[in-house]
Design a protein around this nucleic acid. Sequence first.
DNA 1: CGATTCTTTGAAAACAGTCAATCTGTGTGG
DNA 2: CCACACAGATTGACTGTTTTCAAAGAATCG
Lengths: 190, 190
Amino acid sequence: MCKSLFDHIEKFTTLNPTEIDKLESVLNLSRIKKKEHVLKEGQICNTIYFVVKGCMRQYIINSRGTEQTLQFAIENWWITDYLSYHNHVPSSFYLQAVENTEVIAIEKNALEALLIEIPSLERYFRIVSEKTFGAMQMRIKYLFTMSAEERYHHFNDHFPEFVQRVPQYMIASYLDFSAEFMSKIRAGKI
Amino acid sequence: MCKSLFDHIEKFTTLNPTEIDKLESVLNLSRIKKKEHVLKEGQICNTIYFVVKGCMRQYIINSRGTEQTLQFAIENWWITDYLSYHNHVPSSFYLQAVENTEVIAIEKNALEALLIEIPSLERYFRIVSEKTFGAMQMRIKYLFTMSAEERYHHFNDHFPEFVQRVPQYMIASYLDFSAEFMSKIRAGKI
DNA sequence: CGATTCTTTGAAAACAGTCAATCTGTGTGG
DNA sequence: CCACACAGATTGACTGTTTTCAAAGAATCG
């Protein structure tokens, strides 16, 4: 069901029935199995994804062969590699389902054409992008100013349900410390 | 002169003469002296800034009283605190001129009204925001995967002129290490 | 169950920070 | 034009946080 997307759009702008129809025609509802990838390093990203249900993540594999999660997307978040998407260059990232996930996928060509046709939709994506950017600025602030332990507690306090939901090693790398260290923080051994 | 902004807009979309006039009417050209602030922590950010000439930075003061630069904006970049701007909450950041800087400032109210009027402009800001977001994703990747020394060399290789232009302690904090450590890297003592 | 996948533990080591002192350069006022 | 003040850069000794590695212990899933 695409209702959650339309509800989300309603928060920022309005679409008339014709516009809704047009938008609906470019949406591809898709189920991604846990651990399945929708993008791998080296591929060009031509799609943006809206999470209807479940959880996606963006990660890289570092020089020691360990996965590091850079971003999560849960219900009502968009996720893609915007650099690859806009510049048509190979991606540096993996996009993977953390759980069995339902997404709405939109292809770049179809979307870009539609955005020119529907200013309200352009507006929606502008606002969402700017807000996400604001969240990213705060994320960098936290990474820069808090110790590993502080980052863990802060995240745990703000997203307790999320911490239950995904494997610890993904949270650890998202907060930029090792899975072992997170385990020690949790055990109160720090 | 606002030519640089119009040139930048031309890269992504086109405005007709009427639209250019309307846009021009909301632009405030302003000179910011080196070290002068356009936003301080606790204030609500109602303005976005386009750097015509010079350099601005976003920074915070950490718990030990040290400034940490989170973002730079040089010629043709936009800078603001998007969280404060969109949610109308007190900012966590300082926005300051690194050099004597010419900016084009636009007030939120005027801009948001204009964006509804001029879809092409909405389009411009959407694309710029998404591209900046893509750059931020890469920045986080570098922060996560490279050692302090690697980050320094990488930055130095990609932006040698910029490293000359701003104080080292700002670069150091932008790359998330101490000024002292940067000094040691430069001296080859690492 | 049996096989992964994920988490925990402890010891040793590395990386980078802190602090305090010194050095360098640059712009300003006398 | 000099002297001084101040901002920025460097240095070394010490400290501490976090990583790495390896091994063992839970938990989950077909």
